[in-house]
Design a protein around this nucleic acid. Structure first.
Length: 613
DNA sequence: ATAGGGTTAG
């Protein structure tokens, strides 16, 4: 491990001293009831209970009393005061108590560093840590977790290795506390391999170590490793907790592994972790992402104490499934039970409006944000531009961009271009594209949109140039994939895929259904193919888009009453959308397609999105 | 005394 350390120790930027200087001192008045209590121990106990109940006003009064009576200089008292301000989220007060305390014990240092780390002031925490080492003091296994947490917040791998080296030198690396927090630190710095090495080397591990490792894998998208480790924990009959479940259910949600997710839901039920709001949040998201909105509602209703995240997850679920009115009702409900909405809540609402074309409602929520003291971020502006653009009010969208106080981002431009594309506003699209091109430094996602915008306007040279830039950056347009789950197996298809075992049957089904669809009035619309290809070729490309193959597979595999759930990584093209409506009508099946941002539930020739997507 | 928390966008 030591060899991996960087040659030079990392340098930290100075802490924001200005923040330290603006400290507010505890109020001058003490409560007279403290005067009657002579016993220091009793006062300390009182402070402890105030810490537990986070009663800030009383604590401030008690602090003032300690100052007045000169008790603050007792190490135990200052230690408790530092902890009190840590829990009441006033880390700079902690720091001040620390600075004023004349006799500092190891616990004084430790609690001060912890307070800063817990309250998101990692740089000041690390500065204090450095001061401590500078004074010749030795760090111990109580201090390291706070130090590693600070580095985890910063995500600095160089600092992580440096501190790890220090830990190794002092011989604390194998302890459960230091080890577990170092695992978390490495994962947050993007290094699961270092984390795993540490994990494997620990002689003793607990729930936090295991969960930390699993969560690390999830964080960095190494889903299979996460599931493998989780399985190992189950096989070895080790402790798992709500956080562990929340992590693995999230993995299932990310990859829409419905069957596995259901099994794990069963385990949550057995261990009664299913009533945890964190697990509930992951479960709601799982069922929603797998197209089962009813399941999401069921889980949501069963959670006794609903936190903000759970409400948000349910709101997103409603938005994704075009249950807009439910989303609005949920919002009213959450406000009425006293849950304070945050910026994500409003993103969900705007997202819901955008999916139903509710411009006025969207404007209303956009304004409402400010009443809750939330400044709209670039995501909210992107959402508004998306909403207006989709609803055909592209000019209003441009106005929003011109008037907003922040710099436009890629997502905002992308939303505008999408609006232009949907409404065939090729002129504005190519104008916007020029503007974006001038800005330079365009990300991969935008190049695709730029190229499409130019192509739609017939500006083939610019379109080609945008494509070339994509290639030069080594980025290729994401391959369109569709997948269907059958039991514990996932079948994935690309466009024109011939690799599946049952390919022949699949294409026979497509041919057969195609004829029936044409008799029912389906006409292929090839205008969605932007590449310059011949008519017949266009027709072929579009007929075998991956989602159609996946649906055909579902048709020949699943029993008639079972809805066919298809997941897709890209947007459904207009022609496929029409085609799938006919497919649902001609086959009498329910077909649910999740594209890259929402759900389409096709039934009897109609789609739940109401053709607005 | 000390370690871990989700959700959204083209």
């Amino acid at each position: 491990m030591l060899q991996q350390l960087p040659k030079r120790p990392f340098q930290l930027p100075p802490p924001p001293l200005s923040a330290v200087n603006t400290l507010t001192i505890p109020p001058p008045q003490t409560d007279h009831i403290f005067e009657h209590t002579k016993d220091n121990k009793q006062l300390c106990d009182l402070l402890l209970s105030l810490t537990r109940s986070r009663s800030l006003p009383k604590g401030l009064q008690l602090h003032a009393h300690f100052i007045k009576s000169g008790l603050q200089s007792i190490p135990l008292v200052s230690h408790h005061l530092i902890n009190f301000y840590s829990k009441t989220q006033l880390p700079l007060h902690s720091l001040q108590v620390f600075d004023e305390s004349p006799h500092r014990s190891a616990t004084t240092w430790s609690s001060a560093i912890s307070s800063l780390a817990q309250n998101e002031l990692p740089l000041i925490a690390l500065e204090l840590f450095r001061r401590m080492l500078g004074e010749g003091l030795k760090a111990d296994d109580h201090i390291y977790p706070s130090v590693t947490k600070s580095i985890a917040i910063l995500g600095r791998i160089d600092a992580a290795r440096c501190v790890h080296g220090l830990v190794v030198k002092t011989g604390f690396e194998c302890g459960v506390f230091v080890g577990s927090s170092a695992i978390d630190m490495y994962a947050k710095c993007g290094e699961t391999r270092d984390a795993r090495k540490l994990f494997d080397e620990m002689p003793e591990k607990n729930v936090v170590s295991w969960t930390g490792m699993i969560a690390g894998y999830v964080l960095l998208g190494e889903d299979e490793e996460a599931l493998r480790l989780f399985k190992q924990a189950l096989v070895e009959d080790l402790d798992v907790n709500d956080f562990t479940f929340s992590c693995v259910v999230r993995v299932c949600g990310n990859s829409t592994l419905l069957e596995l997710g259901r099994q794990i839901h069963g385990l949550c039920f057995k261990t009664s972790f299913d009533s945890s709001s964190f697990v509930g949040t992951s479960l709601v998201s799982l069922y929603s992402r797998c197209g089962i909105i009813e399941g999401a509602y069921r889980v949501f209703k069963e959670i006794p104490i609903k936190n903000l995240g759970l409400w948000n997850a349910m709101l997103i679920a409603c938005a994704q499934h075009a249950q807009t009115d439910n989303a609005f009702a949920l919002f009213e409900q959450m406000v009425s039970v006293g849950v304070k909405p945050n910026f994500i809540t409003f993103l969900c609402l705007l997202y819901a409006c955008s999916h139903s074309g509710l411009v006025e409602k969207g404007k209303y929520y956009f304004e409402l944000m400010k009443e809750y003291g939330i400044e709209p971020g670039h995501q909210h502006y992107a959402s508004m531009v998306d909403l207006l653009g989709r609803a055909g009010k592209v000019q209003d969208a441009v106005l929003i961009i011109e008037k907003m106080p922040i710099k436009s981002t890629e997502s905002i431009w992308a939303a505008l271009l999408t609006g232009c594309r949907i409404h065939g506003n090729t002129e504005l699209a190519s104008f916007v594209a020029d503007k974006i091109s001038e800005l330079g430094n365009v990300g991969s996602g935008l190049h695709v949109l730029l190229s499409n915008a130019y192509a739609a306007a017939g500006r083939w040279e610019e379109a080609a140039r945008a494509r070339k830039m994509l290639r030069d950056q080594g980025i290729r347009k994401e391959t369109g994939l569709s997948w269907v789950e059958d039991g514990n197996k996932v079948h994935t298809f690309t466009s024109g895929d011939w690799s599946h075992m049952r390919t022949k049957e699949i294409y026979r089904k497509l041919e057969e259904l195609g004829e029936e669809m044409e008799r029912a009035g389906y006409v292929a619309d090839t205008s969605y193919v932007l590449k310059r290809v011949d008519g017949e070729e266009k027709n072929q490309t579009i007929r075998y888009h991956s989602e159609r193959i996946a649906i055909a597979f579902g048709l020949i595999t699943f029993p008639p009453e079972r809805p066919i759930r298809v997941m897709k990584n890209l947007r459904v093209c207009g022609d496929c959308h029409t085609a799938i409506k006919f497919m649902s009508k001609c086959s009498g099946r329910v077909i649910i397609v999740r594209d890259n941002n929402r759900f389409h539930r096709f039934e009897d020739g109609k789609c739940s999105c109401g053709d607005y997507w």
